[in-house]
Design a protein around this nucleic acid. Sequence first.
DNA 1: TATAGTTTGATAGTAATACTTTTATTTTTG
DNA 2: CAAAAATAAAAGTATTACTATCAAACTATA
Lengths: 224, 224
Amino acid sequence: MKYILQDLKVRINDKVYIKDPESSSLGKRIIEHSILLIQESGFESFTFKKLGVKIGSNESSIYRYFENKHKLLLYLTSWYWGWIEYQLVFATNSIADPKEKLKKTIEIITQSTKEDSSFSHINEVLLNKIVINEYSKSYLTKEVDIENKEGYFSIYKRLVIRIKDMIIEVDNKYQYPSSLASTIIEGALHQHFLKDHFQSLTDCNNKVTPTQYFTDLVFNLIKN
Amino acid sequence: MKYILQDLKVRINDKVYIKDPESSSLGKRIIEHSILLIQESGFESFTFKKLGVKIGSNESSIYRYFENKHKLLLYLTSWYWGWIEYQLVFATNSIADPKEKLKKTIEIITQSTKEDSSFSHINEVLLNKIVINEYSKSYLTKEVDIENKEGYFSIYKRLVIRIKDMIIEVDNKYQYPSSLASTIIEGALHQHFLKDHFQSLTDCNNKVTPTQYFTDLVFNLIKN
DNA sequence: TATAGTTTGATAGTAATACTTTTATTTTTG
DNA sequence: CAAAAATAAAAGTATTACTATCAAACTATA
């Protein structure tokens, strides 16, 4: 995986950026350090001014890449879901059995990222944490319908639909495949968050993983 | 329900406010119109200045009730969960059968609020929408652990634990009662959101409700 | 290698946000 | 009715979230 993905570029809707950050070294530094800074101090207190100081660059230069920090968050999270999608397709396209395929998919979707792997300037471990803590904020906005129309969430949506299709492959009688697919993705992020901050509200801990919880859940629902 | 709850006061952790908004008419107007304003333009663009204009009062007066808008959101959402808890306890404590009790509970937790009922200055229908759109933002912060220790989320936590206990009552062999309980609450808000903004990611619509989805889910998981 | 084009940096500026402080006025209550 | 408490008005500060301008550096190609 490490090597296969090395030269792949996650394709992101070009409306989320003004200038493609992959196209220059400044752009890459913006991405690299925005991940570090958002993870460190949270999205609310993250500003382009602070990022500029951190990368020894000017605020105004960052504004040439992204309109605002919300768009940058959309970029980062789209990249994350695109990266997850690659992993998923790679790991499952050789699996013929629909059950096994779905099982592997749940594993990839719900596990926490353990190692920083393929892309030099992107720390996937930290990005995974950012997605857990901040992803909801990217769509819980008044602009969600406009931005959805612009295609800002298309990678995420494609991922949910992939899972839905796999659920149907296993059990085409199950009545709520879309809702179940979206529950797995959103719910996994939520269980990871609870594990870190509200231990009394989850059974997940360092022994039990969200993967086990959701695997059990899904295969008990669609075993028929 | 309308009349029974009329004189009940939802008890909220007194650290979220500086002065109890229930204690004065200005306080009540703050609550009433903050709900209208947040629902209207979203939490991000909501400010105490705008609220002051709307209620014909001064920004500085509002600051005497709440430290900042985050605390106000904590107040509103705590109130909402407290109100849901009352409904739940009222509606279920006469039910002896654990399955029926859980079923009723899922109904109350997952349904969308249809009518503005008991409290004169609080519009529960709009508050329900605010919770769907903004609740996550109240805990997805860098301060979550401190605020959790201060007890800002205790009503919500108590609610999740109530549901967990009911799940155990029905099936004490099920391995993930806490995770399932938290999935129901969070997942229901999420399905309502998807229904309004990402129809392709959910099976819920004007015919199928999140209540049906989660009732099916829960009772297929814990039917043993 | 000269030069035009592009990118970045530095500086300054604006409007809004998120408050705090002070003082005056109004309302409540004992 | 007086004292205390609550509210309003106004002004002030620091930060945010940008935009605009211009100069410097770097790069691409003729």
